[in-house]
Every structure is written in C-alpha cells, then in structure tokens.
Design a binder for these strands. Structure first.
Lengths: 196, 196
DNA sequence: GCTAGACTATGACGGCTGTTATAGCCAGTG
DNA sequence: CACTGGCTATAACAGCCGTCATAGTCTAGC
C-alpha cells in the first residue's frame, strides 16, 4: 500500500512550503525552522539541500512560483490574451480566496524587502526575472494578436503590476472586489489594444 | 541659536521613521528597537507613546503615509485626473529613486503580512482604509470629469493597484522602466474614460 | 519652592533567529 | 560482507525580538 504517484521529495516539499509561507508572512518573517517543520523535514536537511542558506531557499521558492504561474499563463494564452488574463487572474484569486485572504504572491513579497547588505541578493534578482518572464509571455501574445510592440510591452507591464497590486489590496480589504474591478478594466484594455 | 521651525516631536519622529523602515524591510522585519534608535528616541519612550505596542505603531505609520499621499493627490486632482495621476506616480517615483530602489510603500508592505493571530489587526484595517481613501479621491475626480460612476470606481482601483505593483516591480528590477510603462498606459486610459 | 505628571533610562524576561558542527543512521554498491 | 555517501538527529553559538517593570529625571503649574 504505497502511493502510486511519486510523492514529492523532501526537498520539493521544503521549497513549496517556503513559497507558501513567504506568500503569507513575507520573507523576513519566514524562518527556516518553521519551514522545515511545515515540510516535516529536519532542520539539518534544510542546510543539506540548500547550503547557501535562506537566500537560496527564497530564490528557489520564487522561481518555483514563477514557473508555476508561467506554465498556466503560457497554456491559456494559446486561446488569446483575454483568456490568458482570465487564467492569470483566476490563479491568484484562487490563492487569495482559498487562504481566506491570508496568502498572496511570494514574488511580490520578496520584491519589497530590502536586500540584507551591499551584495545583490539572488532572490531579488530571481523576482525580477519572474516578472520579466510573465511580461514577456503577455507581450508576445498581444503582439501576435495585432498589438503594436511598444503598446504590447507597456500593457504587459501594467497587467502584471495591476494583478500583483490588486492581490495585495484584496488581502487588506478582505474582499475580492478589487480583483473584479481590475479584471473588468484590464479585459477592456486588452480588447481595445488587439483590435488595433 | 535654536531652530525657528518647530522641530517634530519625538513621537512624530518615531512614526515617520517607522513608516520609512516598514517601506524598506516590511513590517515583521522592522523592530521597535531600531525604530527608536533611528528616531534618536529611547526604547522606553516607544511604549510610552504607543502603549499597544507594535500594532499601534504600524497603524499610525500606515495612516501617516496614507494622509501624506492623499494630501498631494487631493491638491493635484484639482487640475484634473491626469494631473492627479502624474502627481501620484511622481510621488512614488521619488521614493523609489531617492532610496536607490530600496524603499517602497509601507501600506503595501503591511497589506501582505499575515495577521499575527485570530484578532483583526488594526494596521491591516488601516491599510484597507488608506487604499479606499486613495480610490475615492481618484474616482470622485474621474466622475467630475465625465466618467461613468462604475467605470470611475473600477479605474480608480486599477490605478491604485497598478501603482503599488509597479513600485514593487521597480524595486525588483532596479529600474524605473515599469513606472514609465504604467504611466503611459494609465494616462491613456484616463483620457479615454473622461472623454466619455 | 514644590509637587504632579510627562518623559527617560536601564535592565530584565522568555523566546525565536540563521547558521554551524558533530555524530549517527541506513540504503545501495562492490 | 564491508563500506561509502546521502540524509538525519541533536545540540550549540551568538544575537536580536516584543514586552514589561522600575527607578530616575525633567518641566509646567500652583
């Protein structure tokens, strides 16, 4: 009686748990001890899998979330930019609602915490990369459907920024109304942009 | 030889410093000890002025920032929604650039940190109130200039969310390009909305 | 001058933090 | 069989955290 699906490894559980905890409490308030406990992994294992410590763990958590959202975005964009937007919004709406307005986007959370020292923190660079990946996917789809290149790039930035900001507003207000507002406005914007 | 301008009281210095530190490192990573030191105030004074502790201090920091931005917004909106948007964007652009991409919006920072327990945290409620104040100012101006009420409310939400998200993206990318993109898109949107 | 109340100074409390070190287990290989 | 290398368990380190308590200082009003 063992599971047929390959259950995630301890390493994967730690990264996924870290992403969830960061999305709820922010990077600084997410401790490695609790992350390990949450993943039912011993503390020692954390430093075995992530020898560079917390920065490495945060970096991988950001990249995991980025790839997860990008996968969904890429797939739904095949049906056009409006469908892609809808999928992107629904993805975050699900996180916000399922967590009772307690979780958000870990990429945003990492982006707004000051780097600890003078060196360039890898987690922050990873967050920038994730934002650029999302923007690139959206901009490409907009161009394919007739939007001007510059317009497409600007609109893609607006979409990513607005969704991230809206998720935060929903958490503060404990309401999904901001998501409804943003969804309606962005959808109309996209329709106007690809209609040339 | 004493200053003629009334120098801010210790209490005001503590709140302003807390707002700055929260905007850089997030709420959980901002310690009361460092806040007091940054304001050249003794630690004991912090609990004298803010008997309810960190929550109260965070709440006042959020409200201070909210009122500060609302004042600027209200004034510039007299020249129309486009001027208001420009002022709002420039205000945050100044913070991001002056801090070398290390500071952002403390209201956003408070919004994305999980409430500590089951009680309703006052700081989070204050953040929700600030967002609503900003949205109300923008929506009112949009309506006055001919936008449909529902359109005005939706657009106001989009503007606030997009600006907050864009500031975070600028910090991650260490670039003001996202602000340029968002500014162009939002300005065009407003022009279209008030042209009826 | 003197007293009340606002403010400061100092120290302590238990608890959590990131990180490292060291010793042990236990599967798989030869 | 031995043994190697991936993983675990446990403990320790120095340091910071929010909060509270207490004693001291200063200043405004009588």
């Amino acid at each position: 009686m063992h599971v047929t699906k390959p259950s995630p490894t301890a390493r994967e559980r730690i990264v996924a748990g870290a992403a969830d905890m960061i999305s709820r409490r922010g990077l600084n308030a997410t401790s490695i001890r609790e992350t390990a406990k949450h993943a039912r992994a011993p503390l020692g294992s954390t430093y075995h899998y992530f020898p560079e410590g917390k920065q490495q763990l945060a970096t991988e958590a950001v990249r995991l979330t980025g790839a997860w959202a990008a996968r969904s975005l890429r797939k739904e964009l095949e049906a056009g930019p409006v469908a892609g937007l809808r999928a992107f919004l629904d993805l975050w709406r699900g996180i916000v609602v399922d967590s009772d307005f307690r979780a958000g986007c870990p990429v945003l959370a990492v982006s707004i915490e000051e780097p600890p020292a003078d060196e360039t923190p890898t987690a922050l660079a990873a967050a920038a990369g994730v934002f650029e990946e999302w923007e690139g996917l959206l901009a490409g789809s907009l161009r394919e459907h007739g939007a001007e290149p510059e317009q497409a790039a600007q609109l893609a930035t607006l979409i990513v920024a607005a969704v991230e900001g809206t998720v935060a507003m929903c958490r503060a207000k404990r309401s999904t109304q901001p998501l409804d507002h943003t969804a309606a406005q962005l959808q109309a914007l996209i329709v106007g942009a690809i209609r040339d």
